[in-house]
Simulated assay, not measured.
Amino acid sequence: MFEVLVYVYENYWQGDACPELHQLSRKLTAVGFEAEEIQAALVWLNGLNIAAQNTQIGLPAEADVAGKPVTATPASSGFQPQSAASLRVYSVAEQEHLGAQALGFVSFLESSGVLPPHMREIVMDRAMAAPGDPLALDDLKIIVLMVYWSFGEEPDALVLDELCDDADFRVAH
């Protein structure tokens, strides 16, 4: 499934350029992916689309002083901003499915300020929907990239490097 997601990310780097799921299925079949992998990825992508749309529902375009549309923030659209003193407690099921390494990485992204709470919750939802017990860190990184992709955002260069770089081949300076 993750190979299919990587292919989708690389070939449709702007989420809105991605074809509908049935057309995407035909294209993935033509490329040579197995039917089971394609089906699992499409179900997962459908869940991602639903989660991203539900997060963006009620995000009316606001107008600035000049009358130009401004995208609403989650806080201005009915989402409550997370308090600096708040704490996300992970359920036993989340802890078991993700494992310490993946949860540590989510915590790292969040504490670095690059994974806002509403995106973190989508990452957690999609991670729980992914196969693997525990989920491999590389698979979690793909999920994080796909969540950014679903919002039409690209993480900044340092975060993108962290998400795409293979740590096994890093040389300490």
Rank of each mutant, 00 (worst) to 15 (best):
Q56S: 01
G58Y: 07
Q53W: 04
A167Q: 10
G15E: 05
T29Y: 15
E96N: 10
D125H: 10
L109Q: 09
D156L: 12
R126D: 00
D125C: 04
L98E: 04
M146H: 04
G58P: 03
P155A: 07
M124W: 07
A157C: 13
L21G: 10
L158E: 15
E153V: 08
D125T: 12
K68G: 00
I57F: 05
Q80S: 08
G67S: 03
H22I: 02
I50T: 11
Q53S: 05
Q80M: 11
T29I: 14
E36V: 11
P60F: 02
K68N: 03
L137F: 06
N46G: 08
Q56C: 06
I50G: 12
A157H: 14
D161H: 04
D133W: 15
E96P: 02
L45K: 10
P117N: 08
E121G: 02
E34I: 05
L160H: 10
V70M: 02
Q39W: 12
Q14E: 14
R120F: 04
G32Y: 03
L5R: 11
F79R: 14
A130D: 06
L21K: 01
W13K: 13
D64I: 05
W149Y: 12
E20P: 13
Q53A: 09
L109A: 09
K141H: 04
G152K: 07
P60D: 01
R126L: 11
L145H: 01
L158R: 15
G132W: 13
M128Y: 09
Y12K: 05
I50P: 02
V4C: 13
C18L: 08
R170V: 00
A17P: 06
Y90Q: 09
Q95T: 06
L160M: 13
W149G: 02
A129W: 01
Q101V: 11
E110N: 08
A157S: 14
